Amino acid sequence: MATRHQRSLARVMVAPSVALLLLWMIVPLAMTLWFSFQRYNLLMPGMEEFTGLENYRYFLTDPGFWISLRNTLVLVGGVLAITILGGIALAVLIDQPIFGQGWVRILMIAPFFVMPTVSALVWKNMFMNPVNGFLGQIARFFGLQPVDWFAQYPLLSIIIIVAWQWLPFATLILLTALQSLDGEQMEAAEMDGAGPVSRFVYLTLPHMSRAITVVVLIQTIFLLSVFAEILVTTNGGPGYQTTTLTYLVYTQALLQFDVGTASAGGIIAVILANIVAIFLMRMIGKTLS
């Protein structure tokens, strides 16, 4: 048992790091909050003034706001669906005794270490390009018209690129959970006459539920801030078809130089992200309880 003196000493030793972490978080947030109440445009120096909630009203009434919010939710939901379903399938496949299992696992995780900008460029120029891309070549081989992915299905293209990057992460987490499954339970179920589908539905999936919940939480936090893939491939277009909340804030700040409105958009994005995080944390709490 630690004495009161030892606990007090531990708090004193931890205090500097906690204070630094709070400053690291609070100072940028406080500055963003301050600018969100100001008319602050880099193209109009010297005309800064307090505007109250005007920036928030302007951002929320922007024609692209609700479209970008919808695109953000579709992007997050689409990537989660692909990575969860694909991760479960790949985890079950890799868990089987196959030749070169170690090398397969190493190759599986490789896309996760590719920088988002590089990944987007590879997909844009080497896979989805309708003239020289790999998918276009396959379409012409079968006598089909190549698909101009970023013109015809821009948001789907972004979802595919991001899902390709995050699929290895989901696979590894789910594979770890799958390997902790008690083999005796599976053998007992097989001896009782349960088929592969029944064993998967009633034993494997419930055992992986906690891992699935963790994957959903971690990926959602990062997917809400997807930016590089959109910038490199579509620039938020055509129109607003691939504009997310993150990209909309970027256009306000660095394309229109409107720091005030961009700050208001950033605060709104933080609030929405926290709402999602609270919902997911409650869902995880119920899963782990």
Rank of each mutant, 00 (worst) to 15 (best):
R7P: 07
V12W: 09
M13T: 06
V18R: 02
L21R: 07
W24P: 05
V27M: 14
A30Q: 09
T32V: 15
M44E: 11
G52P: 13
N55V: 12
L60H: 10
P63C: 05
W66A: 12
I67N: 12
I67W: 13
S68E: 07
R70E: 14
V74Q: 10
G77A: 13
G86C: 06
L90Y: 12
V104S: 15
I109A: 08
P116V: 04
L121N: 04
M128C: 02
R140T: 13
F141A: 11
F142L: 01
G143K: 03
L144V: 01
D148E: 01
W149D: 01
A151G: 11
P154T: 00
S157V: 00
I159M: 00
I160Y: 00
W164P: 09
L167C: 13
F169K: 08
A170L: 08
L178T: 10
S180A: 06
D182R: 03
D182P: 09
M191V: 15
L205D: 01
S209M: 11
R210D: 11
L217M: 12
F222K: 08
F227G: 12
E229Q: 12
N235L: 02
G237P: 02
G237W: 03
L255W: 02
G265Q: 06
A269P: 05
I275F: 07
I278M: 14
F279C: 15
L280K: 14
R282Y: 15
T287M: 09
S289A: 10
